[in-house]
């Protein structure tokens, strides 16, 4: 079994009209045994940039701490927050630094740019960026997420519809994956506010 599926995870980000949503499952497992049911894989970098880290949870946490370190120094030197595109490049370069002993994580990055244009991207554990205009997925449930998002995504959704669709896609997908589930966390980010919602699904 792949180390990427050791803890189990499901991550998805979707864009709407001047907004985006990023969602994850809540399970932390060790192979088939569930260890925690309120685990967080999505981290806030600043008000308009979020990163989800699927894969090995210990690497995800360390990687997040390194990203906070680098982003904080950037904030202090530049006296502003990082743009999502810049942040994605930072994540990419930090991952590639460990080319021959990588963090076993597949990140999903989502943010709102200067003109409130949503930005989403994912990358592999070596930092190869994959940009998308509609949605990105990662984690052990990624295969079923691709299918669910493919059929549920519509361009230019308003925040509420976006929330509904990403939640349905997530819940449908984790039910088809043994290693992820136990509800979900959804972050819905619009230019004016950020909403965090917790989903209940099949809690078993």
């Amino acid at each position: 079994m792949s180390i990427f599926e050791y803890n189990g995870s499901a991550l998805v980000a979707m864009v709407g009209k001047n907004c985006f949503a990023i969602a994850s499952d809540r399970r932390l497992g060790v192979q088939l045994q569930t260890v925690a049911t309120d685990f967080r894989r999505i981290y806030r970098i600043h008000d308009k940039v979020y990163i989800g880290l699927s894969g090995l949870a210990t690497d995800a946490q360390t990687l997040y701490q390194r990203l906070v370190f680098r982003h904080k120094l950037y904030q202090l030197r530049e006296e502003r927050d990082m743009k999502p595109e810049t942040f994605a490049s930072l994540v990419s370069s930090i991952l590639y630094e460990k080319r021959f002993g990588p963090y076993f994580c597949q990140p999903v990055i989502a943010g709102l740019g200067d003109d409130d244009q949503p930005f989403i991207c994912t990358m592999d554990c070596l930092g190869a960026k994959e940009l998308a205009k509609d949605f990105v997925v990662s984690g052990s449930a990624s295969e079923s997420l691709y299918g669910a998002c493919e059929s549920m995504y519509k361009p230019d959704m308003e925040p509420e519809e976006l929330f509904e669709n990403i939640s349905q896609a997530l819940l449908a997908s984790v039910d088809r994956d043994c290693l992820s589930g136990w509800g979900g966390h959804v972050f819905l980010v619009t230019p004016s506010e950020v909403q965090e919602r917790t989903l209940k699904g099949r809690m078993d």
Partner: peptide
């Protein structure tokens, strides 16, 4: 100084 402060936070949260 800034790097030191961040190193500390990285190590001890």
């Amino acid at each position: 100084a800034r790097v030191q402060a961040q190193r500390y936070t990285f190590a001890y949260q």
